[in-house]
Structure formats: structure tokens, C-alpha cells
Design a protein around this nucleic acid. Structure first.
Lengths: 350, 350
DNA sequence: ATGAAAGCGCTAACAT
DNA sequence: ATGTTAGCGCTTTCAT
């Protein structure tokens, strides 16, 4: 009786019971087939598979979760500023996590926090509700957030950031190498007065890029006394790049090349140069960092250090999943290699 | 015995059973208190509440879902291009939905689709898995997607878009009004040769903005023969705006004002003007549409039509929830009012 | 006003 | 190789 009612409302999902009845086996057998467990005979397996197809059966997540004590969700946290960032950097990383999560049959829950998060502020709801099996934190976040999260004993992986306190697994780009590549490229093209421009200087990634810049200059026995280093701790943005470039050129140092801490900054720098009749790359060469889409649209196309954003998201999910499964505590670090993309914004002056 | 083990591992979450034991009531009573059901005496209510607090109890979502046949999730779909869009427009709308979803104790699952989605392509997994109670679609999406989704009989609300086929509930901005406001503003400031620049001309929102522009010109008995309308069907972007402005000024029509279909386009237009020594707003006034953060950072700040993005997301969630609850089929439409934000990019030439 | 008990759909011992 | 059964944590009649 009940069953016939169910049959009428085709909209409802078939359950494991329906499949079992249809295939004339027990629900346990169906479960075993679905999960590729045990040695089920080819015959029954086929029967069950057929019934599954016929009824268009999909296991209920809710039921699975209830019994497995896993949510099948991954939390993704970043600051609101980063999420709304003009250049789609963290959004691409998110896309990478979404992609990989799908591959391993998980969902990603996105939550933004204020970049001025302080102790006692509310955490994303999925944490207190334990609606995630693990958490990915992307970009620089306040230490207070890291502390709050760590109290929950949920596996966490950081992307493109590493908290100063504590020792956490993370996925970062080889920023030092990137800084070296970018600066070496300029040096090899005959540049001597090479400036560095960047904000968020307290972000470890940026510090490393600057270190790469300095190291390259040192190795080439070039001026690296810091006169041409224009940094601040404001957000990395076009505007910031523009203003920094302005200050830099007011120094009258005959600069012929600029390494910007990221592409957004580079765009601002380029804008300043254009507004002030410095030809790119004839008068000044510019190198960025990140490799965002806009690099190719801008004129001239920006030479930059490519950061594989999707890959970072993918790696983070994989790392997180091993942590969830093994619940082991080693703080594994993954360093993603970078490469230089030489385009029109740099030129040899040899 | 088992219980004591549980007590040891404090990390585990308290269950309704633990609370019941602690408060010395039945689990049914706890459930009633948690859900504010039935007439529970003040006394027991207090006892239970105290136990809940003591054990830091939070009901398990998985269990609730299993019994309620609801997932507590809302799906949010947009094209990958829109998600990665340079100006944070749809991302802000998403933030609005996230905000409101949290308020009503739901989660938002984000999924992107290709803007070239065609029949037979895979839908976001949360649909086939029925892991959402309803869906929000933001921005223009291919008709094929709308068709595929509609087969699933899941409540859907569109934001900033309305499919041509079928009749769906949606939340849109008053684009016609916005077009009127923008153009009237320019007319009232003495402009006569007012151009319209925009891409994605087949997007209903853009069409409406253009209609507003034309209507305003008509009412003022100004030239609206379409000579000054520069449109195409490419993506709305700075680049597109730049190129369109270039074409426009090659027409030599003595244009003194431009209404751009959105802010990104306006930025491109402004860039062209700057590159070609047209002063803003002295030589040319520019009005945009959307009101994104960058409007205030650019020089001069952009006059624009404000679209309340967060509010749109909020409205959509509320609308979707009433649909989920009542499962009624009326395709309610919500039109969000707009307002003109006059800033430095426009000037009177009277 | 409160409790007992029957499921929700699934997994995983344990039987057979 | 397959079936039986006991939960997972919760909601919800139906008793009391």
C-alpha cells in the first residue's frame, strides 16, 4: 500500500530498500554493491546495478553521513577582501578546491571572515556546527582566527599563507624562487636600476618575493641598498601600485625596470608609467607576479611569474583529505613550483 | 562503560541522549525544547537549556536532515566567467545570499558552470544528488541550463536575469529606471550628444538599460537615432569599454557624455579618454552602472547607478525559502529599486 | 507536560 | 556470497 503510493509520486528518490526489492536481494547486498565492498557475485552485482539504474537510485547523503560520522564537506575560509578582490586570484584557488572536492565526492562550503577578525568574533558556522570534516584557509588571515580554529581540533590546511604561530600544513608557491626568476630576468636583460614595488609587506609570500629580488641583485653585485624598494603594508591593489610608482619616480633614480609584488600592483605601476609618458617596455620594463587573465589583455601584455592557482587548490584538498583519513598530525608543507612567463612588458637594454 | 569512554574524548560532540541524561528527561523533551515546540514547563525547559549549555550541545545536521527530508542547503549557480569577473558584482550577490542563508540556518553551495553550457552537459552535482532544497541562479546563463534544471522540479530563483523561455521567479534591478536616471542626469546637465556604450547586449538587463537611455533622450527630444549607441555581444569588460570608446570617438561626433552599460565598461571608457587627452569630466562626462568599490578609487570617482547587490542576494534567499516551504508555483518577481550616485565623473556644461 | 517508541536511509558487524 | 540486525541522532506521533 505504502509502496504503491510511493510509486505514484515519481519525484521522490528511490531508497536502498526499493532497490533491494526490485533486485530481490537484501539491502546489505545493495550497500555492498554500491560501495564496491566484499566479493559479490557477478550475477547479483548485475541484478543490483540494473535495479539501481532502473530506479535512478542515488544513496542519500544524509543517511550516509549520519552513519559514517563524516559530513562530506570541506570548509573554505578567506577574508572578505580577498574574496572580493579585483584580480581573481583566490577565487581561482577556490575553483581548484571545488574541482578536486567534486572528484573525491565532497562539497566545499565557502565562508568569508573580516580581515580585522579578533579573538571572540564568531567563527564560520560550519565550524561550530561541525558541518565540515576539514578546513582550508586561503590567504593571509589574522592570527586570532588561526587560534580560534585550532581549538576545534579539525584538520586545517593553509593556502598561500603560513601562520607565524604554530606549525600547520600548507600549500604555498615558491615565492623566493619567483622573486629570483623575475629579477634575474631583468638583470639578464641588462637592467641595473631595478625597483621593487609592493604592499602587504608583512605577508610572508611578499617578504619572500622581496627576498628573492634582493638575493638576485646581490648575486649580480648590483645595488640592493633598499633605495629602490618601495613597500607598505596596505592591500595589494592597482591603486597602491600607482601611488608607489609615483613616489618611486619622484626619487629620480633613473629606474629602467620594476618588479611588482603582484599583478594588480603591476597594473597600477603600468598605469602610472602610461600617465607620465614612460613607454613600456622601451623606457621601463615591468614584471608582475601571479599570472591573472588580465595580464594578456593589458597593453603590453605583462611579463609575470606564473602561480598555478587551480593546482594549489587541488593540492590543498588532497592534503586535507589524507589528514582527515589518517588524522595524523605531521604538518606537511607543499611548495608549488613557479615559472616565468616572458611577455611584452620587459625588454633587453643591452 | 561506553559512556565513560565518550566522556574521556571530550572532542566528540554531545548528542541529544547526553543532554537528556544530564537533564534527567527524555530525548523527546530535549527535542521539543530545542525546537520550541509544545508546552514544556518553564522548569524542565530551564533544566534542559542548562544541560545543553553545559555539554555545549548542537543538534546534528545529518540526523536532522535524515528525518526532515530537507538538506538545509541552497545551491548557487553562476557562470565561471561571472565568478571570476574582475569587478566583484556577482560575488557580492553571493555574499548576500550567504548572509541571509546563515540567518535562516542554511548553507550555500556554490557551483560554476561553463557559459557555453549545452544540453546534456553535467549539471552541478548538488542537483543530481538532490543535496539542495532550492537553487539560485545568478546572472545570464544558457537556456539549456535552465531547461536541464527545470526537469528536476527543484525550486529555482533567478537573480539579475530572466530566462526567455518559461516563467520563473526572479530578483532583478530596475534597469529601465536606472537607464533613465543616468541619462536624465546627463541631459539635465546640459549634454546633448550622449553616447551609450555596452557589451552583452542580448542580456535583458543591458537591453533595459539601453531602453532607459533611449526613452530619456526621446522624452527630451534629443537625437536618439542610434548613431551614438555602441554595442556588441561580447563580455562586459574594461577592454570592451576601451575598444568601444575608441570606435565611438573615431566617429568624430563631438560627444560630451557617455553612459556605460556597467562600471567595468565605464572604466575602460575612462581609460581611453585619459589615453587620448580628453579630460573627465571637463571634456566628457561618464556615467556607469552597478556601483562597485573601484568607483571610488578611480580618478575622478565614477558617477553611477547603484545596484544593491547584497540586498538582491538576500531577497532571493527569502523568496526561495517561501517557495521551498509552500511549494507553490507562482513565479513571483521582485524588482529592486536603484538610485543614482553622483560623483566626480560628470559635470554640468550649461 | 512528558515519555516511549517507531522510523528516516544507510553501514558494518555478525550470522548463515 | 548473501542476509539479519543493531545502531547513527534526531523528529514525531501516540500514550500516559
Amino acid at each position: 500500500m505504502l509502496i504503491s503510493v510511493k510509486r505514484l509520486t515519481e519525484i521522490m528518490c528511490a531508497t536502498i530498500k526499493d532497490v533491494a526489492e526490485e533486485a530481490k536481494v537484501s539491502i546489505a547486498t545493495v550497500s555492498l554493491v554500491v560501495n564496491n565492498h566484499g566479493r559479490i557475485s557477478q550475477e547479483t552485482r548485475k541484478k543490483v546495478l540494473k535495479a539501481i539504474k532502473k530506479l535512478n537510485y542515488l544513496p542519500s547523503r544524509s543517511a550516509r553521513r549520519l552513519v559514517s560520522r563524516k559530513t562530506g564537506n570541506i570548509g573554505f575560509i578567506l577574508t572578505e577582501e580577498h574574496f572580493l578582490h579585483t584580480e581573481p586570484f583566490y577565487t581561482r584557488i577556490f575553483l581548484g578546491t571545488e574541482f578536486e572536492a567534486r572528484a573525491i565526492d565532497h562539497y566545499v562550503l565557502l565562508a568569508t571572515i573580516s580581515s580585522s577578525y579578533k579573538k571572540g568574533d564568531a567563527l564560520p558556522r560550519f565550524i561550530s556546527e561541525r558541518n565540515v570534516d576539514g578546513i582550508i584557509v586561503a590567504g593571509k588571515v589574522p592570527d586570532a582566527l588561526t587560534e580560534s580554529i585550532s581549538r576545534y581540533k579539525i584538520p586545517v590546511v593553509f593556502i598561500d599563507f603560513s601562520p607565524v604561530i604554530g606549525d600547520y600544513p600548507n600549500v604555498i608557491t615558491d615565492n623566493l624562487k619567483g622573486g629570483l626568476l623575475a629579477t634575474d630576468h631583468l638583470i639578464q636583460n641588462g637592467h641595473k636600476n631595478i625597483a621593487f614595488v609592493g604592499g602587504e609587506i608583512s605577508h610572508p609570500s611578499i617578504t619572500e618575493r622581496l627576498r628573492g629580488y634582493k638575493l638576485a641583485l646581490e648575486r649580480a653585485h648590483l645595488n640592493s641598498d633598499g633605495e629602490l624598494v618601495m613597500t607598505n603594508d596596505e592591500f595589494l591593489s592597482r591603486q597602491n601600485g600607482y601611488n608607489s610608482a609615483k613616489k618611486l619616480f619622484e626619487l629620480q633614480k633613473n629606474i629602467t625596470a620594476i618588479f611588482a609584488a603582484n599583478d594588480a600592483t603591476a597594473f597600477g605601476v603600468m598605469q602610472y608609467l602610461k600617465d607620465n609618458n614612460h613607454k613600456i617596455p622601451d623606457d621601463v620594463s615591468v614584471v608582475g607576479f601571479d599570472d591573472v587573465e588580465a595580464d594578456l589583455l593589458i597593453d603590453p601584455p605583462l611579463t609575470t611569474v606564473k602561480v598555478p592557482k587551480l593546482e594549489m587548490g587541488i593540492e590543498a584538498v588532497q592534503l586535507l583529505l589524507t589528514m582527515i583519513k589518517s588524522s595524523n598530525g605531521t604538518a606537511k608543507k607543499i611548495v608549488i613550483p613557479v615559472e616565468l612567463k616572458v611577455r611584452g612588458s620587459t625588454k633587453s637594454i643591452n
